[in-house]
Every structure is written in structure tokens, then in C-alpha cells.
Design a binder for these strands. Sequence first.
DNA 1: AACCCGGGGTT
DNA 2: AACCCAGGGTT
Length: 418
Amino acid sequence: MRSRRPGAAPRAPPIPPVPPVPPARAAALRRRLLAWYDASRRDLPWRAPQGAADPYRAWLAEVMLQQTRVEAAIPYYRRFLEAFPTLEALAAAGEEEVLSRWAGLGYYARGRNLLAAAREAVARHGGLPATPEALRALPGFGPYTAGAVASIAFGVRAPAVDGNAARVLARLFRIEGRPEERAVRERILGVAARLVPAGRPGDWNQALMELGATVCGRAPACGRCPVEPLCEARRAGRERGIPPPRRHPAPALLRVACAALWRDGRLLLVRRASRGLLGGLWELPGVTLHGADPARAAVRRALRRDLGLEASVGRELAAVERQLTHRRLQLIAYEIRSVRPVPGTGKPPGKSVPKPVPGTEHRGRAGPAGPAPGMRSRPVPGPVPGTRWISPDALEGVAISTAVRRLVEALAAARAKE
DNA sequence: AACCCGGGGTT
DNA sequence: AACCCAGGGTT
């Protein structure tokens, strides 16, 4: 520590540089970690027995693994690959079809971006491009996924730093501070870029992540760690404090009231807008409640505005509550006693629909439906754009969130008891 | 930089 | 209940 000379200007705290990565240390880390990976890597469906992975499969796995644990993604990966075995098959698919295979996985923009990127890759490159820069230009490819696919599938010497790798590297090089801050992130990325070996970039990146997932977690098992002797956080006794935990505000409550419209044992579903919460998925027609909104009146207004239906709203039939990361989602379904078309709105032209507060809208449709679906009378049973009737025991193939699935199941159970 | 986006497991 | 997960997009 050098003392400041009298008269010298007080210096702002220096920006910490990327920690040095001596070649000998890099070589030791690579040797030990790759040996450990060869011996104890998990047998995952998208991993080739040896060598480079199939680009399409590696990409699909990476997207499904975004913010999603390996064990949770595996069954989805198998089913998705069965439906869309190749990049070309995916590119030729429809969004509804893709989203129905994604249903339950969450973060549905991943599914939509996956389809858009597949189409773009086939059209512009005749397949997935090999460089991180070209991949990065496709929807759904951020820095991590671009580096992961380039290194794992194409052998490009690019880093791929996910949450696991970031934690491992921060500990190995004792990088203190919050990884959300740019300076900290740049130091981690700097170390990562210097460490990737030219020989086995994909295995190296996966080894870092694998170590973070199985050994170097929030509560690290240093006794099983192949690089413990090289870990500066461990040497300083700081392994448990790096990285510091993030804090999130308590999730807000989102109350949604909806209508259980039955016809011939089937329920009416409407489609949500493709952006925002649960974008592009099907749900019961309804509305988000604000404050102490009376639920039944709100449902009545929503049916009139969105579907052109005059309805009599009955009692509560079912309710479910789901915990999302950032929301407590509460769904309440009400009985619909009778329903008839609002006079004069059978063929609404460009009727102005009140614009919902962004992020709180609970209708997926651009405008009112055409012919009203009658309950007893059956005026025009033809399909209405943006709506569909589904049987509760035929939910496979329907793009529907877990929350709405639970609600539909509860409604079917309540109906069965009558 | 801050916020949004699901669902589920671990501690 | 807090925290996290093979992150990316938008503002």
C-alpha cells in the first residue's frame, strides 16, 4: 500500500482490472477441470458421446436451459425433438404448434424466438451459422447462447459464461462484488475469454458450468472440487460470500377474474397477445382486477368488450394460485349462467378497444369476436378467430400455461361433482 | 442500468 | 420465504 504524497490529488477508487491469468495457472486449471469433466460429466440427451454436438440439438438444449434447470428441461427436450427432429422441420412449423410443445416450460418468448431464429437461419444461412457474431444476430441469441453454440457445436474458441460459470470464475479468481455491475461482469468475462483453450472450447465451457451446477453451487462442496488448490476464494475463506446474493422485491399480486363458458363439455379459450406475460398462450376469457374491483362485474364488462357477449355471471367455480418469479398469480373462474350476443355488435368494424395498461392486460384478442358462441342455442358453431373450445381432457397440443391448466383441471373437477 | 419474462427445486 | 437456475429483450 503506497501512501498518498502530500499535495497529490485524492484519487477515485481505481477500476479493478481483469485479474491476471498466468499461463501456468491457466494450463493447470484447464488440465484439472477437463480431466474432471471427462471422468464425471453427466450423461445428458443433447451431449454427443464424443466430439462436437449436433448444432441444432445443442442450440435447442441451450435455449431450454436458459433460467431452467437441467432436470426440468430434459423431458421437454425429448418431446420437442420428437416433434421437430431437425432445424428444417422446426423452421417449417407453426407458432401454435411450437408453443404447445413449450407449454409448461415458461419464458415463452424463448419458444417464439427459437422458431423465428430457425426460419431466419434456414433462409439466410441454409443452417445455423458458426460464429458467435452471426449467431448473435438471430433472435434469442444473447452473449451466452452465441458463445455456447459456437464453442460446443462448431469448436470456436469463444467463452460462454452463464450463472454457473460466472460463480465458478468469480471464486477461482476471487472477484468480489455484484456480477450485475458492469465492472464486475467485465472482469469475469475477461478471465473467461483468456481461459478458453483452443483445443476443446466447448468441453471447457461445459466443464465450468458442470462444476458450478454439481460442485461449486451456492453452498460449495470444496471437498469434491478438482480445482480447489487453485481457488483464491477458497484460500481466503471467501468461497461462500462470492458472489453476494441478489435481492429482489417481493412479487406483486396479480388477480385475474375469468369466465367459465361451457359448451358441450368444452371450455371457451381466448388467445393472449404474443408479447408480454404468457404471450401467445391460451387462457379463459377474463380481466385483470385492480385494487378492490368487484370481480363479477369486471368479468361481465370483459365479456361484453372482448367477445361481444352479454352474460350473467354466477358464483365462483374454481380458483388457483401460482407463484411466478416476479408475480403471485391468482386466477378465479366464475360460472356463466346465460349469455347472448350484444345487440348490434355482431360484426363490429374498427371498434375502438380501450388500450390496456402495458403488462397488465389479460386479453389476447385484438377485437371482439364475430358470431357469439351460444350456450344452448347454437347459432353459428364455426370457429372464431382468437377463440377456441377445448375439452379439459384434451389439453395436449394446446399452448397453455401451467396456471391456466390447473384452473381448467379444477373447473373440470368441480363440474364432475355436480 | 433497470425491468420484464415461468416454473420449479433447494436451502 | 429466500434464492437460484446452462439468459435475452426492451426501455
